[in-house]
Computed example of a mutant assay.
Amino acid sequence: MGSNLPVIAITVGEPAGIGPEISLLAAWELRAQVRPILIGDAAYLAMLAHDLDKNIRLMGISQQALRHNGLPGCGKDQITVIDCPLAAHVQAGQLDPRNGRAVLTTLDVAIEAIQRGWCDAMVTAPLQKSTINDAGVAFTGHTEYLAQQTNTPQVVMMLACEASKHLPQPLRVALATTHLPLREVPDAIKFDDLLRTLQIIHNDLQEKFGIAKPKIFVTGLNPHAGENGYLGREEIEVINPAIQHARSFGMDVHGSFPADTLFQQKYLKDADCVLAMYHDQGLSVLKHASFGLGVNITLGLPLIRTSVDHGTALDLAKLGTGLADASSMKVAIRIAAEMVARQNASRNQAANHN
């Protein structure tokens, strides 16, 4: 395997769900394009690999050996697994809180691997928040945990999908608020936060997506974007002023637009990203358009992180191996690799100018 391949840490997620299966399948299929490093229980992954495809070859390494010697070399038809042992036997489809802390450890190991320069980016398979909370650890989600562990004051959730026969160009939708009850959304939309969100989107589209002058469209919060205050004043008092302020900084930001009409090709063809005000306003559209090929990307972190756009699918896992679709995981890995290449090119260009 060529040494110039991007090294991608892949956390396999909730062991009772489809995460380990789709991680194995995607890593094995893409091993000529990236060097995948699986992070999970090595023994369980070896057993699962044998059931999925007897050609899959894994090489386990302990966390202690990794920290002492760094990432070992690996043959082109072998995948390295950083071992994060589970506390309890896995029964597909059945959650077990005893394994919650081990799932969380995979995230810590991936962060460390990037910070130490062993890996270039991380891709996360879905996990079950309740299992980690039931294990006694307060946990609200990947995005929030990664921000906390990297001391990042604000991050932005963005989902994206590649161009396809259904979509003539990539679609990217970022969120001003994420996992909040709907009644709390208006109070959570604040001028300073919205301005920082736009800055994060602008910067990451430049550095990690290679878009020199990103164009960002912003939805309103209310129907018809408030209709000049008759259907709500958040647009007048918060959203539109933040947009104008962002434009004064040189960002190409437009809006606010009514969300029910913005998501049409005649408008989207001019946008590099749409910033929606809340979760279902933007993601319902993207998940319908992406046909299971969407990718979750966390913007604003000091590292590259992508993920699938679906959950643990416990019911599917319970039916047995070989049924899960790894398409979203494969796209997540490819997009992470592309982001690594663009970020490296951007940094090299900046270094050459200094």
Rank of each mutant, 00 (worst) to 15 (best):
H142C: 03
I56T: 06
T152I: 13
G136P: 08
H310W: 02
H89A: 14
A92D: 05
T177M: 00
P126R: 02
H89F: 10
F217R: 11
G13H: 01
F209M: 10
G2N: 14
Q91N: 15
A336E: 00
F217P: 08
C119R: 06
S307P: 04
L205K: 03
L5G: 06
K287Y: 09
L182Q: 07
V331G: 00
Y267S: 09
Q154V: 06
A246D: 11
L314W: 01
L275C: 06
Q154I: 10
G226N: 04
E144Q: 03
E21C: 09
F263Q: 00
L58P: 01
K266D: 11
V103I: 08
D193K: 09
Q64M: 13
Q349I: 04
M339N: 01
P181Q: 08
G320F: 07
N240G: 01
P170W: 14
Q154G: 01
T105K: 12
M1I: 13
D315P: 07
F263Y: 14
A65I: 05
A336Y: 02
I22A: 05
V238K: 00
L262S: 05
A188V: 06
E207S: 13
T124V: 03
A188R: 12
T80D: 00
N348D: 15
L30D: 04
G294T: 03
G40Y: 09
R31V: 08
K215A: 10
H254C: 07
I200Q: 09
G70S: 00
Q63K: 10
L24S: 03
H68R: 13
L303G: 08
A225T: 04
G117H: 05
S307E: 01
G141V: 04
K269Q: 05
R116D: 15
F191E: 04
K330D: 01
N151Q: 12
A163V: 13
P36D: 05
I297M: 02
L52Y: 03
V156M: 08
S248W: 14
A87C: 13
I22S: 08
N203A: 02
P181T: 09
A345Y: 05
R196G: 00
P20C: 15
W28F: 12
N354T: 06
A110N: 11
A350N: 07
F263K: 12
L48P: 05
D325W: 08
V109T: 14
N99L: 01
P153D: 06
M158V: 03
M277V: 13
A176C: 10
L283I: 15
L66F: 01
F139G: 00
I8S: 10
A337Y: 01
D204C: 11
L319P: 06
A350T: 14
K215Q: 07
N69S: 09
A336W: 01
N352L: 12
G136H: 02
T11S: 13
S248N: 03
A9I: 11
A125M: 04
G70H: 03
A43F: 04
P181S: 02
L262M: 13
L104E: 05
A313P: 01
D204P: 09
Q148D: 15
E162N: 03
K287R: 12
G60Q: 10
A176G: 14
F249N: 12
L86H: 11
V185F: 08
T178Q: 07
R31F: 14
R98M: 03
S307H: 04
E338V: 04
I132A: 06
A16S: 13
G40N: 10
V123N: 07
H166Y: 11
F139H: 02
Y230A: 10
S3T: 15
K190V: 07
